[in-house]
Structure formats: structure tokens, C-alpha cells
Design a protein around this nucleic acid. Sequence first.
DNA 1: AATAAAATTTAGTCTAATCTAAAAATATGT
DNA 2: ACATATTTTTAGATTAGACTAAATTTTATT
Lengths: 217, 217
Amino acid sequence: MLTFSEENYLKTIFHLEQIHSNGVSTNALSKEMETKASSVTDMIKKLSEKKLINYKKYKGFKLSQFGMETAIAIIRKHRLWEVFLVEKLNFSWDEVHEVAEQLEHIKSEKLTNKLDAFLAYPKIDPHGDPIPNKDGNFPKISKMLFSECQVGDEGTFIGVKDSSSIFLQFLDKNNIYLNAKVKIIQKEAFDLSLKIEINNNTIMVSHKTASNLYLQS
Amino acid sequence: MLTFSEENYLKTIFHLEQIHSNGVSTNALSKEMETKASSVTDMIKKLSEKKLINYKKYKGFKLSQFGMETAIAIIRKHRLWEVFLVEKLNFSWDEVHEVAEQLEHIKSEKLTNKLDAFLAYPKIDPHGDPIPNKDGNFPKISKMLFSECQVGDEGTFIGVKDSSSIFLQFLDKNNIYLNAKVKIIQKEAFDLSLKIEINNNTIMVSHKTASNLYLQS
DNA sequence: AATAAAATTTAGTCTAATCTAAAAATATGT
DNA sequence: ACATATTTTTAGATTAGACTAAATTTTATT
Ligand SMILES: [Mn+2]
Ligand SMILES: [Mn+2]
Ligand SMILES: [Mn+2]
Ligand SMILES: [Mn+2]
């Protein structure tokens, strides 16, 4: 049985592997977990002991098949609970992440699968992230950050990179909603800000904002 | 912020105070928590430090007002989650306690209150126990163990004392359901077993069983 | 009231998860 | 290539929650 801490490390390693596909470093993980590198080394040894990761001293680490499955199971729970909170309990999308951080650690496969059924097997969470099914499979959604788009690109706003409350509330305030139709109108060379057309409104978004919004074309 | 362990102690102290209304002893708590007395002493000191209980060395302890409110809030969550699992996710009444033991520790008042609303403010949990409202109030249900009844007593089976899976499954198997109409037909002096009429069936129940079933007359 | 028994507390150990400071290994720049 | 910087690991400390064994306090019995 894994501890909450072990589960949180696994989840974070999983996310880091999406970016650093050739293995994760101690420092990268310590930064993401907001702990000291020495604490990471300790935990890494435990996870390695438990066959959840493959680790060679000084050489970084990667999730094992078992570690991968475990991480995905936690992410599945996190996202299903987020859907529950929004769809059934009327939470707003900026309030759910924190609570889901707790709920993701509840240990009952039966609960997870019954919750999945109760929610009618949702495919994406309130922030546009895909929800793994019972077997751990989920589609890789092809998407692109607004900041990486070219002028003239168009498509649908399908997800956020940053799920923090402050960012999501900022989007609400500016009427930037999931599934809105978007077109990149103009890009300022000076500050990389974008002029976009979203739901027939033309607005400016900063580079920082644009690099946290995903477009699907 | 309380740890899971502190919360579990508080809850257990609360339950013990229902029986030992003049204060709880270290040994009684250690027995109930399935820990050693010395571990209880350690925890008691922490809870006392945090003003959750009133404690005098060697003299036992009692929940403070604050400790009482905290304990009731945890019990509220436990029972609400049990209702959710049975009513919404189709768990059976013998499967929910274990999962609720985990869910009761989720920290979000908003979640608790929204869950309460979603469930339409239930008054009792799947085992017949009352659910405290947002302010911590709940009715003291007048009830009596079958084993304490006299021949001729009648009423409704409204709750169980033991919520263990094994006991609840045993009740299911013998068609003993919550809210059944019950009449005590006969009591054997030899082994204190009872002959009862329940839903127009006449069955025998052992003293052990009878001392885990509550009747409301 | 003295002694024996039971209950409770204290002292010291262990594990998990964190930290700081120091040492060791690896990577980088000229 | 070698000195320096960076990264990673090790060593030692701390806190929470458990344990065992021993000491202390309270309760019960003669
Ligand atoms: Mn989230
Ligand atoms: Mn988490
Ligand atoms: Mn229960
Ligand atoms: Mn619990």
C-alpha cells in the first residue's frame, strides 16, 4: 500500500516524463514537488526499492511499467473526482483541483469504477485533460499552445496548462471558456502578445496567458 | 489542521463518551483504537495541547467544546459519504464503512455542505445512525437493543450497533432489513436467544445478534 | 493501613518524510 | 584537460505516530 507522499511523487514523475521523455532528474522533481533535492533522493530510493521506478545513482530515473500504471490510476481518480465536483456538486472549475488532490488518494477500485459509471464514463475533466479508463488507456489529444500558433491558425480552445484557481478565474473574467472557437489574428513581435478572435469577440492575450491555453485545430 | 490520526482519536473518544459519560480512560481508548496504552497517552497529550480535550494526568479526559464540534464534523462527513455510496453509487450497506473511514478525512467544508445538499439533506445513514447537520445538531434517536427488550415489545428495526461487513451480510442473508416491523415473541432463559416476528416471518436470533440490533417502539 | 494488582505514564527505539550541511560525482568553460 | 560550477548523494537532525519495557500512580484486597 502506497503512502500519499509516494503517490504524489509518482504522479509528478509521470507529468515530468511527458516533457523530459529521456528520464527525470532529481532537481527537476525537487523543483516540481517543492521539496529539497535530498528529500527527493530519499524518496527515489524507496520508489526504486518498491520497483515503481528504474533508477541508477546520478543518472536519473523513469517510471517502471508498474509505476506508470499506478500513476495513471491516481490521475484517473483525480480527474473523475473533478468531474464529479463540477457536474454533480456544482463546483466551478477553479475550485476543484485542491479537493481532488485529496480525493485522488482514496483507495477503493470499486469506488473509482462506480464513480466512473455514475458520471457516465466522462472522457475529459473540467480543464480539458483526458481521463484514463479502467485499463489505464486514454487518447493522446493533439493540441498546441496558443503561444506556439501562427497568425491565421484557428480551432477550438480545448484545455489549460495551468489549472490554478487564479488563472481559471482570470479566464472566467475574460469570457474565455472551454470549447470556444478561436482564431489567431495577430502576434506582436514586441511582447509576443496575441490578438485573438474568440466567440466572435476580439481580445488581446499576453504571452504568459497564451502559453497556458491549448488550441485544437 | 488535524492529522488523520488525531481525527480518528477524536471520533473514538466521542463514541466512548456516549457510554462513559463521566470521562474516558486511557485503557478504554487504547482498546477501542487497537493501540497500546502508551501510544494513547502520547496522543492524549497532543490533543490536550491543542485544546481538543480536557485532560488531567491519571484522571482520564473528556472532549472540550471545540473537540466535540470537531468530532461531530468528522462523523457528519462519514455518514454523508456512506449515504452517497449507497444512494448514488449503489454500494450495499456492508461495503461502505471502510471507504467512509477514508472519505471522512477530506478537508473541505464546501464539499461537505454541497454533498449534503446533493443528497437532499439526509437525516440518517445506511445503518440508521443520525447525520449531524451543518451546525452539528442531530436528534438523539430513542432506541433500545433487541436484547434489552421484554417479550411482547414491538416496534421498528431502526439501526445496528455493529456495522461490520460480516454482521451486515449475515442480516441480509436472514432477511433482516432496516425499517422492518418487529415483535419480540419469546426469550429463552438458557441462552438469551430471542424468537422474533419480523415482516410476518418468525425467526430465532442469538443473544449476540440481538445485542447489535436497535428497536424503536 | 499495608500490600498486591491494575492502570497510566515515562523513557527509549523505530519508520516515514522532511530538513540543513557537507561530501562526492558529473558537467562545463576556457 | 583541468579547474570550476552544478547536480546529486550522504550524514545527521527533527517530528509524528507507533512500539516495548520500566517506573509511577491509583485502586482493590486483605
Ligand atoms: Mn486537477
Ligand atoms: Mn495528491
Ligand atoms: Mn460507518
Ligand atoms: Mn477514520
